[in-house]
C-alpha cells in the first residue's frame, strides 16, 4: 500500500453567488474528508455547481478553506510557500489559456521559473505536441492543442500531484479520447497522483481509478 499523499480533513467552504443582484452565501463543501495515496488516480464526479472545481482550487490554495485542514505528505499545505505548493501540485483548467508567445515559450515557462531539468523536446514528445508546432504562436492553436500545451506546461514544473478540472470538456470527441489516453499514460510513466474532475459518468468509467461523487458538499463512493 502506497503512503497517503494528500489528505483533506473536515474541509468546509462557503462561496458567494449572485442571485437577483444580491450576493448569497452558499455552503459548497461541508466537512469533506478525502485520502489519496501516492500514485493513485481519483475521479470526482458531480453536478454543475456541486463544488468540484472549488475542491481542486483549495488543494493548490488558489482559494482558502473556511475550516478544516489539507495535508500534503502529512504537512499542512499552509506551511508551504504558496508558490512552491503550486509547483508541487499542478493544475490543468477546463478552458486552456495559452500565454503570449510561441508554444516553446509556453512550455519553458515553468522550467525558467523553477529551473527544472525537463527538456522542451521531452515535454512536447510526452504530450504529443509535434516538433513543428514548437515555434508556432500559441494563441493561434486549436483548443485541443492548447490543452496539450497547458498539460505540458504543468508537467514542466515536475509536479507530484496533478489536478485536472474537466480538462476535456471543451474538446471534440476525438481530441477528448486522445487527451484522456495521454493523461493516463503520463500517470503511469511518472507515477503521478491525479485528481480528475469530470461531470461525465462515461468518462469516469473509461478512466478508471477510484470513483467518487461530490454530493451535498461531501464525497461518496460512486
Amino acid at each position: 500500500m502506497n503512503p497517503v499523499h494528500l489528505e483533506l480533513k473536515n474541509v468546509s467552504k462557503n462561496v458567494f453567488r449572485r442571485v437577483n443582484n444580491n450576493m448569497v452565501r452558499t455552503q459548497i463543501l461541508s466537512n469533506l474528508d478525502l485520502k489519496v495515496n501516492k500514485g493513485e488516480l481519483v475521479t470526482i464526479m458531480g453536478a454543475s455547481g456541486s463544488g468540484k472545481s472549488t475542491l481542486l482550487r483549495l488543494i493548490n490554495r488558489l482559494s482558502e478553506t473556511d475550516s478544516g485542514i489539507i495535508l500534503l505528505k502529512g504537512n499542512d499545505i499552509r506551511s508551504y510557500v504558496p508558490m512552491e505548493l503550486r509547483r508541487r501540485i499542478g493544475m490543468v483548467f477546463q478552458v486552456p489559456v495559452a500565454f503570449k508567445g510561441s508554444v516553446r515559450d509556453n512550455l519553458s515557462f515553468g522550467i525558467k521559473l523553477w529551473g527544472g531539468n525537463t527538456g522542451i523536446e521531452t515535454l512536447s514528445r510526452d504530450t504529443g505536441i509535434p516538433g513543428n508546432l514548437l515555434d508556432a504562436d500559441a494563441g493561434q492553436l486549436s483548443t485541443g492543442e492548447k490543452q496539450r500545451v497547458s498539460i505540458a506546461r504543468a508537467l514542466g514544473n515536475q509536479p507530484e500531484i496533478l489536478l485536472l478540472d474537466e480538462p476535456t470538456s471543451s474538446l471534440d470527441a476525438v481530441s477528448e479520447q486522445r487527451i484522456e489516453k495521454l493523461l493516463l499514460d503520463l500517470q503511469k510513466e511518472r507515477d503521478l497522483t491525479i485528481l480528475w474532475v469530470t461531470h461525465e459518468k462515461e468518462q469516469a468509467q473509461r478512466i478508471g481509478g477510484k470513483r467518487l461523487i461530490l454530493r451535498e458538499g461531501r464525497l461518496e463512493h460512486a
Binding site: 488558489l62 512552491e84 503550486r86 515553468g110
Partner: peptide, 9 residues
C-alpha cells in the same frame, strides 16, 4: 490564475 497555478508570483 493559470500563471498562479504554475507557481508564478
Amino acid at each position: 490564475e493559470t500563471y498562479l497555478a504554475l507557481g508564478a508570483r
